[in-house]
């Protein structure tokens, strides 16, 4: 066993130094000779590399079937005013507080109703960040209602970001109308 290992060691040592030596000799070859060799191959190589034939194919993709899901709730809109936010902000402004107080009072009088708060943004931001921002706007409104005594399990939120604008012109008035939380009663 030991003999075999010793033999393999010798082979390995030979391999290392053998290779190194060959490399050195090649580097020492005079430049002229090497150039000659290159020119030779290029002449012999007049006909180029013949690449293997290629068949161009493409997978024929079927179309995805998109199923429509039935709505979970009957939606009631227009019961409450929207509340508005400043650009890239999600704190509740003083003028929004009376609206939220009315909503809280209504929910406490109608204990069977559930509320969905939609968060919306203007189009100036980017889509993904706007969805996160709309989420925070809806959450600010939700937190305010919970603070006024509404049970948290009665309020769900959904963000629509800039995907459902109220107004589509590119003006500050229009953008301001789109930065909103919208309230939908679910029954």
């Amino acid at each position: 066993m030991k003999k075999i290992i010793l033999f393999l060691c010798l082979v390995a040592v030979w391999g290392v130094f053998g290779c190194a030596k060959r490399q050195v000799t090649q580097q020492l070859q005079p430049g002229g000779q090497q150039q000659e060799a290159v020119r030779d191959t290029s002449v012999a190589d007049k006909r180029g590399e013949i690449k293997p034939e290629e068949r161009i194919t493409e997978q024929q993709l079927a179309k995805v079937e998109t199923k429509e899901e039935p709505a979970r709730f009957k939606e009631e809109r227009g019961l409450f005013d929207d509340i508005y936010f400043d650009f890239d902000k999600y704190d509740i402004k003083p003028e929004a507080k009376p609206v939220l107080k009315d909503i809280a009072a209504w929910l406490l009088k109608n204990p069977a109703a559930r509320l969905s708060i939609e968060g919306h943004c203007d189009e100036r931001g980017t889509n993904e960040y706007n969805l996160a921002l709309g989420d925070r706007r809806a959450k600010s409104a939700r937190d305010f209602l919970i603070a006024l005594g509404v049970a948290s399990n009665r309020i769900e939120i959904v963000s629509y970001g800039e995907e459902k604008p109220q107004c589509t012109e590119q003006t500050e008035e229009c953008w301001a109308k789109n930065r909103r939380a919208h309230f939908v009663v679910l029954r």
Binding site: K46, R47, G48, I50, K51, P52, R55, I56
Partner: peptide, 24 residues
């Protein structure tokens, strides 16, 4: 400059795949 062919290749495809063929 070298008057040399660099490569040659044959491509085959259905007629409707002319664009993917050209891109290849």
């Amino acid at each position: 400059f070298e008057g040399r062919e660099m490569f040659r290749k044959e491509y085959r495809a259905e007629r409707n795949l002319v664009r993917p063929l050209a891109h290849s």
